[in-house]
Computed example of a mutant assay.
Amino acid sequence: MNTESEKKPIFYKTWAFRYLAIACLALIACAVGALFYNHHPKPLKENRFAKRDIHAGSSRATLTLADGKKIILDDAPNGILAQESGSSIIRTGTGQITYAVNEKGADADVAKDKGVNSLETPIGGQYQVRLPDGTKVWLNAGSKLTYPASFPPNKARKVELIGEAYFEVPKIVAKSLIPGNDTTINVTFIVVSEKQRIEVEAARFNISGYPNDESTKTTVLEGAAQINYYNLIKVDQQSTIGVDGLQITAANPKEAVAWKNGLFLFQEESLETIMKSISRWYDVEIVYTNDAVRKELFSLSVSRFDNISATLKSLENTGLVKFKIKGRKITVLR
């Protein structure tokens, strides 16, 4: 039988083992905690614009018919909306309408010369239209396109633009109007916009000519364009009409049509120009606390469909400018 003195070492060994186990567990817990802290994603910084953020624009426009009737296209159903000058006006989906010329219906109606329509986008809106001749037009925010519901045969196709639009014009071949002449001619397409007249036969090009801009710019992506009768703009060139008259320079086509592709894309552009584009798309007022910052040059590449905070934060990351949002007013801080 064991004595008390013989039991004590076992008792002490048992408690020593327990202390050692507890210490090991504590070390393991600390190691796991450190590992979790280092590898677990840290909470993102709070977006200081979150409570005052502003959503991007969307597909919105108003179609005005020859008789003055207005159709709000964002509320209109898909299908035939109206019949004008031998054409059916069809809403084919969100953000687009097309003109389908009815067989034998166009000639008689066009002779009356009454089928003038207009498509107008509000600030914060954009829309796409396929004209009766097959020309595709993307209309940017705060813009207006006026055009005939059916183009007369053998005559120039003429439209008028206020604001900004991208055009894809197909080639149209027709018989000569000269009596006894059986040759064919290429029917021209004419765009009359702020301070200019653009004439093409088949081309892809962008025109930006808002009334409150300092200049009107036309960029050719395919084909060629004749501006104001005597000047030719070729592929990857841009004409600028401003206080210094007409200038033709090399262009960045991707930058010119970025808006149509859902982007804000600017390379070394003045903040004032960038903020004008932002104000038209997000429907906001821009206020400057320091006029000098207007001329500062910035580069920007963000989605047009993000909230305004993403766009403003991209500019703030340069460290040169900050913004404050109050309602629909954006204050530019130096």
Results as ranks from 00 to 15, higher is better:
residue 130 R to Y: 03
residue 120 E to N: 08
residue 247 Q to P: 01
residue 72 I to K: 12
residue 17 F to M: 12
residue 228 N to W: 00
residue 59 S to N: 15
residue 285 E to N: 13
residue 83 Q to P: 01
residue 199 E to L: 08
residue 173 V to S: 10
residue 54 I to Y: 08
residue 160 E to V: 02
residue 287 V to Y: 11
residue 109 D to C: 05
residue 105 G to D: 08
residue 86 G to H: 07
residue 312 L to M: 07
residue 188 T to W: 05
residue 193 S to Y: 04
residue 185 I to Q: 13
residue 211 P to Q: 12
residue 262 G to S: 06
residue 280 R to K: 12
residue 212 N to S: 11
residue 57 G to M: 06
residue 104 K to I: 09
residue 170 P to R: 02
residue 42 K to S: 13
residue 127 Y to H: 06
residue 183 T to N: 14
residue 29 A to T: 14
residue 297 L to Q: 14
residue 175 K to T: 10
residue 105 G to C: 08
residue 164 E to L: 04
residue 32 V to Q: 10
residue 14 T to R: 15
residue 75 D to C: 00
residue 28 I to C: 11
residue 180 G to S: 08
residue 131 L to P: 02
residue 200 V to E: 06
residue 26 A to R: 00
residue 303 S to D: 09
residue 55 H to C: 00
residue 255 E to W: 05
residue 112 K to M: 12
residue 139 L to Y: 08
residue 14 T to W: 12
residue 25 L to R: 00
residue 5 S to T: 12
residue 249 T to V: 14
residue 243 V to P: 00
residue 182 D to K: 14
residue 285 E to K: 15
residue 151 F to V: 10
residue 285 E to H: 11
residue 223 G to S: 09
residue 331 T to Q: 07
residue 219 T to W: 01
residue 248 I to Y: 07
residue 175 K to Y: 08
residue 169 V to P: 04
residue 10 I to E: 14
residue 99 Y to P: 03
residue 167 F to Y: 11
residue 185 I to P: 01
residue 305 F to C: 05
residue 162 I to C: 04
residue 117 N to A: 10
residue 1 M to W: 10
residue 163 G to I: 08
residue 307 N to D: 15
residue 56 A to E: 04
residue 168 E to L: 05
residue 56 A to Y: 00
residue 38 N to C: 05
residue 214 E to S: 15
residue 109 D to T: 09
residue 152 P to W: 04
residue 137 V to Q: 06
residue 194 E to I: 03
residue 216 T to G: 04
residue 151 F to S: 11
residue 175 K to I: 01
residue 90 I to G: 01
residue 92 T to M: 02
residue 59 S to R: 11
residue 35 L to F: 14
residue 75 D to H: 14
residue 152 P to N: 05
residue 299 S to P: 10
residue 294 R to I: 08
residue 137 V to E: 01
residue 207 I to L: 01
residue 253 P to N: 10
residue 9 P to T: 08
residue 92 T to V: 14
residue 196 Q to F: 03
residue 243 V to C: 02
residue 15 W to M: 13
residue 15 W to D: 00
residue 71 I to G: 02
residue 247 Q to E: 11
residue 206 N to H: 09
